[in-house]
C-alpha cells in the first residue's frame, strides 16, 4: 500500500477532514484530523470516504443543475463518466467506473459544487495551524488533537510529525487506530502519543476476516506489543457494537480478558452502531452493506456496559432521568 508521505524530514499527508469541537475521541474537547487510507474494509464503516488512500470523487446529486448545465459531459471530464438517461430529467448520472480521471482541477469547474474531491495534500504546519486555533479550549478541557481515519498509521511519518509538532506546541495527542499495520509504523507514531484509542472489532479470526477483510492475529499482537512497549501511553479499547455481528457478551468478555492484565489500558468503551455515514455512500457511489442492521437496543448496551464496569471495578450512577 502506498504511503502518501514524501520524506520523513518534511512529510505531507493526505487529509480528509479537520473537525473541531469533538468530545468522544479522547479526553476533553478535541480537534479530529481524519487521514485518508484504510487497511480494513469493515462492512459497517461510517467513513467510507476515508478508505481509499488517494483523493477521490464525490457527487451530491441534490446540488446538480441537470441538463441546463451539462459541463461535466465535456472536456476535461472523462468521456462517459457523466451522462443523462434519454427522456429523463433530473441530475446527471455517474458511471463510477469511468471517473478515475476526475481530479481537483476538473471538479472545480462544477459550478454548484456537486462534484468535489474527498481528500487533499497538506503539510504538517497547515494542519497544526488549524488545530491550534482551539488551543485555549484544549487548555481548559484537557483536550487536544486526535488523529483518526481511515487508518492514520498508514501515514506514519506524517502522523509522527503531526504529533511531534503538537507536543512542541503544548497540545495533547490521541490516536484512533485499528492497528492493522506493520509494527514499524506503530513504533514511529506511539512515542508521540498520549492516548491511543484502539478497536477490538471481533474476537474470532475467521469472523474478523469476514466482517473487516482480514483476520485479527496481527492486530492483537500489535495491541499487546503496544501495551508492553509504551507503558506511559493511556490505552482505551473500543468496540463498535453491532447487533448480529459483535454485540454479545462473549466478545465483550474476551476483550476484557485480553486487556485487563495491562494496567495502562484504562478503559473500554462501547460505540453503539449508527448509520450516520449512510449519506456518504451515496456521494461515492458505493454500497452500504449493512442496510438491514439496526442500532443496538439500550438494554443490550446497558447489559454489556455493566459487564465492563464490573471488570473495571466501578459502579455507574443510576440515570436520574430514567423512569
Amino acid at each position: 500500500m502506498s504511503n502518501p508521505s514524501t520524506t520523513p524530514s518534511a512529510p505531507t499527508g493526505i487529509v480528509l477532514n479537520i473537525q473541531r469541537y469533538c468530545s468522544h475521541d479522547g479526553p476533553g474537547i478535541r480537534t479530529n484530523v481524519f487521514l485518508k487510507g484504510c487497511s480494513l474494509r469493515c462492512k459497517w464503516c461510517g467513513n467510507p470516504e476515508s478508505i481509499r488512500v488517494k483523493p477521490e470523487l464525490s457527487y451530491d446529486p441534490k446540488k446538480c443543475k441537470g441538463r441546463e448545465c451539462s459541463l461535466c459531459l465535456k472536456d476535461p471530464f472523462p468521456k462517459g463518466a457523466f451522462y443523462f438517461t434519454e427522456g429523463e430529467e433530473g441530475p446527471v448520472k455517474v458511471n463510477w467506473d469511468l471517473t478515475s480521471g476526475c481530479d481537483e482541477a476538473s471538479c472545480s469547474l462544477c459550478p454548484t459544487g456537486a462534484l468535489e474531491m474527498y481528500g487533499k495534500t497538506m503539510t504538517v504546519d497547515e494542519v497544526l495551524n488549524e488545530v491550534e486555533k482551539d488551543a485555549s479550549i484544549y487548555r481548559t478541557t484537557g483536550g487536544g488533537i486526535t488523529l483518526s481515519g481511515g487508518e492514520c498509521m498508514l501515514q506514519p511519518d506524517f502522523s509522527a510529525a503531526l504529533f511531534g509538532g503538537a507536543h512542541q506546541r503544548g497540545i495533547n495527542t490521541a490516536v484512533e487506530t485499528a492497528c492493522n499495520v506493520p509494527w514499524t509504523n506503530i513504533e514511529k507514531v506511539l512515542p508521540h502519543v498520549d492516548t491511543m484509542l484502539h478497536d477490538h472489532k471481533l474476537t474470532i479470526p475467521e469472523r474478523h476476516k469476514k466482517w473487516t477483510g482480514v483476520g485479527n492475529e496481527r492486530i492483537l499482537a500489535n495491541f499487546k506489543r503496544a501495551y508492553e512497549t509504551f507503558p506511559n501511553v493511556d490505552f482505551i479499547a473500543r468496540t463498535p457494537l453491532i447487533p448480529g455481528v459483535n454485540a454479545d457478551e462473549e466478545h465483550i468478555r474476551a476483550v476484557l480478558a485480553f486487556i485487563r492484565p495491562h494496567k495502562n489500558v484504562i478503559d473500554y468503551e462501547l460505540l453503539p452502531y449508527h448509520r450516520f455515514g449512510l449519506g456518504k455512500y451515496e456521494y461515492l457511489g458505493k454500497v452500504y452493506e449493512l442496510d438491514d442492521y439496526k442500532t443496538p437496543s439500550d438494554e443490550v448496551v446497558k447489559h454489556l456496559q455493566a459487564i465492563i464496569d464490573e471488570a473495571f471495578g466501578r459502579t455507574r450512577q443510576a440515570d436520574p432521568t430514567a423512569k
Binding site: 463510477w96 467506473d97 457511489g285 454500497v287 442496510d291
Partner: peptide, 17 residues
C-alpha cells in the same frame, strides 16, 4: 443516486436489499 448501469450481485455499487 447510483449509476443505473452499476448493477451486479456483490458489486460494490449494489445495495442488496
Amino acid at each position: 443516486s447510483l449509476a443505473p448501469l452499476a448493477l451486479g450481485d456483490n458489486s460494490s455499487h449494489v445495495i442488496q436489499r
